[in-house]
Design a protein around this nucleic acid. Structure first.
Lengths: 258, 258
DNA sequence: CGAAGCGTTGAGTGCTTTCAATAGTTGTGG
DNA sequence: CCACAACTATTGAAAGCACTCAACGCTTCG
């Protein structure tokens, strides 16, 4: 899964190797010997400071962005005063792609820390698609993965207890860091308690309280943004607890298709 | 928006006119004079009885389905015993498309009543894509719309009160029916209270109670599956009520991009 | 050093859930 | 065709989880 880093793709921009489009377009580029086409794609390297927006909800769709370093939160502001965090994103992730349907962004993206992003304008994306056939399916794939992620979020928020949600959140983060070669047990959060609460559909105080519960239970150590996971198994157990609700209805198949 | 029904597309399969792919592929087909290619696409008409599955979570991705009549619910079964309803779908909707990423279905689709669906196998879809260029962007568009829908669901479940959720649900249904030429104020639900509860992240009893609340408040009349909306404005007002939570943090932009 | 934002903790409330009981509805088999 | 079983829907009472309100340290930054 991380083997791109090992192989030397001399033809590619060095920073491309962590782009989420790279694993899809790279083999095709190589096979077709069209490496020169790859270099025709002009991307723009941007530095985004903490608190800055990469794009905002309802703004026109000009480009997609691949995160090279740092982290973002995406959110929507529905009816006045409400902010739903949709997700936190780290390096290698593509942001803004889901604006394809309306050609307007359906979410806002805000930097949680100083970030470096690769901006791929719409026209460059078009060029990329036409020169590299594998890109289009990759886009479909990425969108489809996002849907899957949303389903999981939905399920978590509507069926799991507050403790289970936070436990799950921490484990997901832990996995992220582990996959990227960082410590899976000790890390610093780039988001506030408020953001976490917004993602998990909880109140800030609840998040805070559960952190201390977990600490008292010996599952982790928490000091502001610094987290040390002490008992991964315990967290996994906690994350699978739910607020009950049997619901074994309907699953029986009644007839065979005609 | 409904003008396809007026124009006579003699070249198209008659039932195609309500397919969600039709508005995208049809103009291109016509412009290119490639109507004969359209007929090369072999689709299969299926009848699905109530309680039958169109496909199940984790089953291999063989085809997508366009609903011609009837209604479906989609759901996932995460950890044992849990069922999260993802949505209810009516005629004109495309089901199964989001299996594209994993080539396995990420949700189950179950008929709520006797349904007629148009099955488009994967290979036929490929043929369609290659002969009609507008289809591929249409697929992206549909996926992107589903993401937007999921965001709304997420926001609703994590931020709105139980009453607001049910009100919103009824209004959405009402809109659906209105757009399809049915009564926007009187209709029969094809789903159970359990299903509604599953969609909205509530307990069955809560759904039932709120129905009677609404009836007592004069907003609607309810008798089992039969619903008559009496006060749309009242419902809209109810649907925008939330459980509070100000959250005006973070929105300030701190610097300008470098 | 003061202001503003972030995080924690406590007390009390309440919305929603759970448990439980009852009826209406549907479908199947004797 | 009736009766029983299974499912669906409603209603009541009680409990609990998470929220709101409020106050207070801690940290950051101008």
């Amino acid at each position: 899964m991380e083997n791109h880093a090992v192989i030397d793709f001399a033809f590619a921009h060095s920073h491309c190797q962590q782009c989420s489009l790279f694993p899809y377009c790279q083999p095709t580029v190589k096979r077709c010997g069209e490496t020169e086409k790859f270099h025709e794609i002009k991307t723009q390297n941007l530095k985004i400071e903490r608190g800055e927006h990469l794009f905002r909800e309802n703004s026109p769709f000009n480009a997609i962005y691949s995160i090279r370093s740092g982290s973002f939160k995406t959110y929507t502001n529905s009816e006045f005063g409400k902010e739903q965090i949709l997700g936190f994103y780290f390096s290698g992730t593509l942001l803004g792609l889901n604006a394809l349907s309306t050609m307007q962004h359906i979410e806002s993206a805000l930097a949680l820390e100083t970030c470096s992003v690769c901006k791929i304008s719409l026209e460059q994306l078009e060029k990329l698609k036409s020169s590299i056939p594998a890109v289009q399916p990759a886009l479909l794939r990425i969108l489809s993965e996002e849907i899957q992620y949303n389903h999981q979020q939905l399920l978590m928020i509507s069926k799991k207890s507050a403790e289970a949600r936070l436990a799950k959140f921490l484990l997901t983060l832990s996995n992220h860091f582990r996959k990227r070669g960082f410590s899976a047990t000790e890390f610093n959060l780039s988001m506030t308690r408020n953001d976490i609460a917004g993602l998990l559909g909880l109140a800030v105080e609840t998040v805070s309280r559960i952190f201390t519960h977990f600490q008292e239970a010996g599952l982790l150590t928490v000091n502001r943004r610094n987290i040390v996971l002490l008992d991964i198994d315990g967290l996994m157990k906690s994350s699978s607890e739910h607020t009950a609700q049997p619901l074994d209805n309907y699953i029986v198949q009644k007839k065979v298709a005609s």
